[in-house]
Amino acid sequence: MLAIVAAVLFFISFLINAAEITTNHVFSSGNVMLLGLVLLALHVAGIGSGWAGRTRRR
């Protein structure tokens, strides 16, 4: 799930950069890209990748 959100943030960052949209300092292209990288790193680390269900042993 976090990887999908990261991909969306990368796309938004690309649009901001390609269209040369002027934004404030919080939503600049670089900041949105860094948020995407943080989410991607969390996904690779295993956080937010899904629920680890309990297994029953008999």
Rank of each mutant, 00 (worst) to 15 (best):
W51C: 09
I12R: 01
A7T: 15
E20D: 13
A19L: 15
I21Y: 07
A6S: 15
G50V: 09
V32T: 02
A45Y: 02
F27T: 03
F11K: 03
N17K: 15
L42I: 03
A7N: 10
S13M: 02
G30S: 11
T23L: 08
A3T: 15
L39D: 01
F10Q: 07
H25N: 07
A18K: 14
I21N: 13
S29C: 01
L39E: 08
V8W: 01
V38M: 06
V38S: 04
G53C: 08
T23Q: 01
A6H: 09
G36Q: 00
N24E: 04
L2T: 05
V8G: 09
A52N: 12
F10P: 01
L15K: 00
S28C: 10
M1G: 01
V38T: 09
R54G: 05
R58G: 15
G30A: 12
L37H: 04
L39T: 07
S49E: 06
S29V: 00
R54S: 10
L15A: 13
V32G: 01
N24C: 07
F11S: 14
S13R: 11
L40C: 06
F11V: 10
L15Y: 07
G48M: 03
A19M: 12
S28Q: 04
I4L: 11
S29G: 07
N17W: 13
H25K: 11
S29L: 05
G30R: 08
V32L: 01
F27V: 13
L37V: 08
V38K: 03
H43T: 04
A41H: 04
F11G: 11
L34Q: 06
G46L: 05
V44D: 05
A41P: 09
W51L: 13
M1K: 11
A45M: 05
L40V: 01
M33A: 05
R57V: 14
I4K: 08
S49T: 05
L40R: 07
V44F: 08
L42V: 02
